[in-house]
Amino acid sequence: MKSWIRMAGVAMMLAASGMASAGAKVTYVDTEEMTDVPRFAVDRESMEIHFREHLQRLAEQLPAGQQLNVEFRDIDLAGDQFPRVAIQDVRVLKGRADWPRMDFHYSIEQDGKVIKSGDAKLADPNYLMSTNRYDNEMYSHEKQMLEDWFRKELLGKKR
């Protein structure tokens, strides 16, 4: 019984310390209607998870107690999607007019108050020519574009 109480106390302390650290809340407005996202629901959900986790990792760089809120309004993934078989599509990156684009609203909250907010329309027409630290990951070009925006807009740093 005592070990259960001790474990509950540790869990409460971890939860309390997590509340003090920076975090991110990411939402999506009608993903099915966005410009270019995966056509299968399970693939769209996977994409949403990738971007949510990526923004949560980026938000860890914010000062303690601040939260990043992002509401994606439109996403146009890098490349063009070509249906090949019934269960899997192929995304082809040509480097022409198929660059990644994102449209979202963001805010930074601290103690329940918005301290910064705005709308972002990101695009990277040179996505195949620039350095990308996420090359071996899904949605690497979009992740790099989000990181560049985060560093410049929210941290005031250059790449």
Rank of each mutant, 00 (worst) to 15 (best):
K2T: 15
S3H: 12
M7C: 08
M7D: 12
G9N: 08
A11H: 06
A16G: 08
S17N: 11
G18M: 09
M19A: 11
A22T: 05
G23C: 02
A24G: 04
D36C: 07
V37K: 01
F40V: 08
A41D: 14
M47S: 06
H50E: 11
H50T: 10
L55G: 00
Q56I: 06
L58N: 00
A59G: 05
A59H: 06
E60Y: 08
Q61Y: 03
Q61K: 11
A64M: 04
G65H: 03
Q66V: 04
Q67H: 12
L68V: 06
N69Y: 13
N69E: 14
E71H: 06
E71A: 10
R73S: 11
D74T: 04
A78H: 05
Q81W: 07
F82M: 13
I87N: 13
V90L: 15
V92D: 07
A97V: 10
D98N: 00
W99M: 09
D103F: 02
H105L: 15
D111L: 06
V114Q: 04
V114K: 08
K116D: 09
S117N: 12
K121R: 13
D124K: 02
N126P: 03
L128I: 10
T131A: 13
N132A: 04
R133W: 10
E137V: 01
S140R: 14
K143M: 09
E147M: 02
E147L: 02
E147K: 01
R151A: 08
G156H: 01
K158Q: 14
